[in-house]
Design a protein around this nucleic acid. Structure first.
Lengths: 113, 113
DNA sequence: ACAATATATTCAAATATTATTATATTTTTA
DNA sequence: TAAAAATATAATAATATTTGAATATATTGT
């Protein structure tokens, strides 16, 4: 099992608009570099850089098909994260009851309300 | 509903070891700054900076209790993310069938395997 | 073998993030 | 009302991230 620490590292890596779009596409199926180049509208070297970063972190991998590199998802947490990013939340979390006590909050003075 | 773009921004903000620990604690309940100072073992200004960042992004908020600031969770996605970070995945995603066709992949040449 | 295609790597510049130090603000107690 | 406690803000320095430009590599077609 991966540690929470390495999961945070993973979050950091994927928390980028281009990389999320790459991963979103890969949840749908295999794609090669020039497929991405087309719909991401960024330069080929930049696409490669993002793919490379994702790959060195074990998030994606590829196989060769002629001179194409066909990328695919490897880390099973990705589809769950993508799903979560699209999940609809209606409200904020309920505010805690006023003046609940924090660790230090056996505060001697008067409470302000 | 929040856009996927703003959710990516949120990911970026929370993808930091200290901030995840703060949020993890807040899923358990209200905490004040000096509570964090204690168990995070970082300086008070640094705690405040992290809290401030989380607050300006609407992820957490606080109420006053005397001179204490009692912080609590606001964004309902946080508990779900924390849960996901701790979720146990046994294997990698299944590799796609060899040589499946990408958009450009009606490749005329021989396949390398 | 040579040209073309698909992709990767390297370097540098611009920008963003992080932690530290010093100082300020606010509320409460004496 | 002055001191203290709790917390915030600002400025800085160190570091990391991001992109762009140029170049390199690898595979296939001729």
């Amino acid at each position: 099992m991966r540690s929470v620490g390495s999961r945070i590292e993973l979050l950091k890596i994927i928390a980028h608009p281009v990389r999320i779009r790459i991963l979103e596409e890969l949840t749908k199926g295999v794609k090669c570099v020039s497929d991405f180049e087309e719909f991401l509208e960024i330069s080929q070297p930049n696409v490669s850089q993002h793919l490379s970063l994702l790959r060195t972190h074990g998030i994606i991998d590829y196989y060769m098909d002629g001179r194409l590199r066909c990328y695919f998802l490897r880390d099973p947490i990705i589809p769950d994260i993508i799903k979560l990013l699209k999940k609809d939340y209606i409200e904020e979390l309920p505010a805690p009851a006023c003046c609940s006590v924090t660790k230090k909050g056996t505060y001697p003075g008067k409470r302000s309300h």
